[in-house]
Design a protein around this nucleic acid. Structure first.
Lengths: 227, 227
DNA sequence: CCAAAAGTGTTGTTTATACACCCATGT
DNA sequence: ACATGGGTGTATAAACAACACTTTTGG
């Protein structure tokens, strides 16, 4: 291997391109994100965002989807490009441009398939993150900022919930991500006025209290700009 | 040259990385953007966004700034990362990832220094763009979308104006970009309530009519999120 | 005195906020 | 019967939208 010639040659220098993914979910009443332990230097043994190198025949978003599936076994979740991080010294090995994405995992799809390469992975509360490799903390913070902002003006919150959900569960999503309580009556008036959800007719009986109506989004799968 | 060996070799294939820049200004009552004519294939002779390859020792934003200065001679204007375009077939020559930026040029800094390489360049009204090379139309449209959105919730509009400006000029920026008229009294109430500008004490006498007060932004240079 | 752009208030409507009690259920 | 979370209305304040005339200047 070391004596073999490098096969890929160019007239001008090229940087490496990776995608890194900030994978959010809500677990145990907290906003959490998925980290994997690095098996190789640099930052060997440290925590990092899942991600990897772009293949030459795949679109950027497909690369992010592939990495997401490889690390978690999860497909078909909301995935959005966040920002591209390209400081010249962000990776000590070579010049690496990272196109960051973020993904939202509904709370009923949390059973992660351990990654094929047996790397260990874990969920971490967003406000108790360990040290992260590279500039991954900056990436995570920027993703969080975007998420908080999008709660206000888009239907992104539904992506954390199963197809059917109660209004209290929906309110919990908002409160958890914003870390602040909201008034129940005002929240319900607000969401109903947006005309985004409808009652399914079903109800959920949970504990020793009145059952809750179940709702669904009128346009499932789509994240729309509201307001 | 063709018989010389390619100097830059890697164990894995690497894409090329470019930055492309959507340069907006307001000229002749219209939102316009700067295009350059391509001297080489593909799309030789066609119009394209200014941009170019990333150097290995420069940050992404510095690459965009450099290209901006090379094409227009303009420095120190508002520049923001837009999105990264990475479809695998977006460039017929090789795999190219384009990190797109957009820049806003104040109306008093429009005298372009012809680019050092004598490429011809020109301003085009946004709603009368010619055919563009690669996926550059998509990039331009996405930049326009972002610009329209940011008018509402940031102080980006000031970036189109000189340090001192009248309220009518400011309103014109909003109207031109949105392509719709606004009520003068409501606009003035709104902008004053935001507490972003202050009168300079100077006034401008223009034609045969009442002179207008000149204002400045309280925090020049900074684009802030408002609302 | 005329043309042209600058400047200025009021009213009605919509949207946001604050706030407390009854309801249906399981144990 | 009680504990638990589900569900509901009203009053006040703030933001937004519609709308027309007077002022100052140059020619």
């Amino acid at each position: 291997m070391p004596t073999q010639t490098k096969q890929f040659s160019y007239w001008h220098p090229h940087p490496a391109v990776t995608t890194d993914i900030v994978i959010f979910t809500i677990r145990e009443e907290k906003l959490q994100l998925l980290l994997i332990r690095r098996r190789n230097p640099p930052f060997q043994g440290g925590w990092a965002l899942p991600g990897g190198f772009l293949n030459m025949d795949e679109d950027l978003a497909d690369c992010a989807k592939r990495e997401l599936e490889e690390e978690t076994g999860i497909k078909n979740v909301y995935l959005e490009q966040l920002y591209t991080f390209g400081k010249h010294d962000r990776d000590p090995r070579e010049r690496v441009i990272s196109v960051a994405y973020y993904a939202l995992i509904p709370s009923d799809r949390l059973t992660l398939q351990p990654a094929s390469d047996a790397t260990d992975a874990g969920w971490f509360a967003y406000d108790e993150l360990p040290d992260l490799a590279f500039d991954h903390r900056e990436i995570a913070e920027q993703a969080h900022e975007r998420l908080v902002a999008k709660l206000d003006y888009s239907t992104i919150a539904f992506q954390f919930l199963p197809k059917q959900f109660t209004l209290s569960e929906l309110q919990d999503v908002y409160e958890t991500i914003r870390s602040e309580p909201m008034d129940k009556r005002n929240f319900r008036k607000w969401i109903v006025a947006r005309n985004l959800i409808e009652a399914t007719g079903n109800e959920r009986r949970n504990g020793s209290h009145r059952p809750a109506q179940l709702f669904r989004t009128k346009r499932p799968g789509r994240v729309e700009i509201i307001r």
